[in-house]
Amino acid sequence: TEIRININGVTIHVRDASEELKKLIEHLLRLGADEKEIREVLHRWEK
């Protein structure tokens, strides 16, 4: 699944996002995570 996240005008594009990762990101956004925090989570997730 491919997702695009727009945070304050900055688009983060994620290829091959699992449903689990998608739910995690949606949850973090609801909690008010910023772009830097989302990128950090994505970076750690890929490892």
Rank of each mutant, 00 (worst) to 15 (best):
T1D: 11
T1C: 05
T1R: 11
T1A: 10
T1L: 14
T1I: 15
T1Y: 06
E2F: 00
E2H: 11
E2N: 13
E2Y: 00
E2G: 06
E2T: 10
I3R: 03
I3V: 11
I3C: 03
I3W: 01
I3F: 02
I3T: 05
R4F: 13
R4Y: 10
R4E: 13
R4M: 11
R4P: 08
R4S: 15
R4C: 07
I5C: 04
I5G: 01
I5M: 05
I5S: 02
I5A: 04
I5V: 10
N6P: 07
N6H: 15
N6Y: 02
I7F: 03
I7W: 00
I7K: 04
I7A: 09
N8K: 08
N8V: 05
N8S: 09
N8M: 04
N8E: 08
N8F: 01
N8P: 03
N8Q: 10
N8G: 14
G9H: 10
G9Q: 08
G9L: 06
G9P: 02
G9C: 03
G9A: 04
V10P: 03
V10N: 10
V10D: 07
V10M: 07
V10L: 12
V10I: 11
T11E: 10
T11S: 14
T11N: 10
T11G: 11
T11Q: 12
T11F: 02
T11A: 14
T11L: 10
T11I: 13
I12C: 02
I12R: 01
I12A: 02
I12Q: 01
I12L: 03
I12Y: 00
I12H: 04
H13L: 09
H13R: 05
H13V: 12
H13G: 05
H13D: 08
V14A: 04
V14E: 02
V14L: 09
V14N: 02
V14G: 04
V14S: 03
V14Y: 04
V14W: 06
V14C: 04
V14F: 09
V14Q: 04
V14R: 01
R15F: 12
R15M: 15
R15Y: 13
R15W: 10
R15T: 14
D16T: 07
D16L: 05
D16A: 09
D16C: 06
D16F: 06
D16W: 07
D16S: 13
A17P: 12
A17V: 12
A17K: 02
S18W: 04
S18I: 04
S18K: 07
S18A: 09
S18R: 05
S18E: 07
S18H: 09
S18V: 07
S18M: 05
S18N: 10
S18C: 04
E19A: 09
E19M: 08
E19P: 13
E19Y: 06
E19F: 07
E19W: 07
E20W: 05
E20I: 06
E20D: 13
E20P: 06
E20Y: 04
E20Q: 10
L21M: 06
L21C: 02
L21T: 03
L21N: 00
L21F: 07
L21R: 01
L21G: 01
L21H: 01
K22R: 13
K22Q: 13
K22N: 09
K22A: 14
K22C: 03
K22F: 15
K23N: 14
K23G: 14
K23C: 08
K23S: 12
K23Q: 15
K23A: 14
K23Y: 11
L24E: 13
L24Y: 12
L24W: 07
L24D: 05
L24P: 00
L24C: 02
L24N: 08
L24Q: 14
L24A: 12
I25R: 00
I25N: 00
I25M: 07
E26M: 08
E26A: 09
E26C: 04
E26W: 04
E26T: 08
E26H: 10
E26V: 05
H27K: 10
H27Q: 11
H27F: 06
H27T: 15
H27M: 11
H27R: 07
H27S: 12
H27E: 15
L28E: 03
L28P: 00
L28C: 06
L28T: 01
L28H: 10
L29G: 03
L29Y: 03
L29P: 00
L29A: 08
L29K: 04
L29S: 05
L29E: 06
L29H: 06
R30N: 11
R30E: 13
R30G: 12
R30W: 13
R30T: 14
R30K: 14
L31A: 15
L31M: 15
L31W: 07
G32L: 02
G32W: 01
G32I: 01
G32Y: 01
G32Q: 03
G32R: 03
G32V: 02
G32K: 05
G32D: 03
G32S: 04
A33N: 03
A33Y: 11
A33V: 12
A33M: 07
A33F: 08
A33L: 10
A33R: 05
D34C: 03
D34M: 07
D34K: 07
D34T: 15
D34H: 07
D34Q: 08
D34P: 09
E35D: 14
E35P: 07
E35K: 02
E35R: 02
E35T: 07
K36D: 11
K36L: 11
K36G: 08
K36R: 10
E37Q: 10
E37R: 11
E37K: 13
E37Y: 08
E37A: 15
I38C: 01
I38W: 03
I38R: 00
R39G: 04
R39K: 10
R39S: 04
R39N: 14
R39D: 15
R39T: 08
E40K: 06
E40I: 03
E40D: 13
E40V: 02
V41W: 05
V41I: 09
V41D: 01
V41Y: 04
V41E: 13
V41R: 05
L42W: 00
L42F: 01
L42K: 01
L42N: 00
L42V: 14
L42I: 14
L42H: 01
H43W: 02
H43L: 07
H43T: 09
H43C: 08
R44L: 15
R44T: 09
R44M: 14
R44K: 13
R44H: 13
R44E: 15
W45N: 07
W45F: 11
W45T: 05
W45D: 06
W45M: 08
W45Y: 12
W45V: 07
W45I: 10
W45P: 03
W45A: 07
E46D: 11
E46M: 12
E46S: 09
E46T: 13
E46I: 12
K47L: 12
K47H: 15
K47C: 11
K47P: 11
K47R: 13
K47I: 13
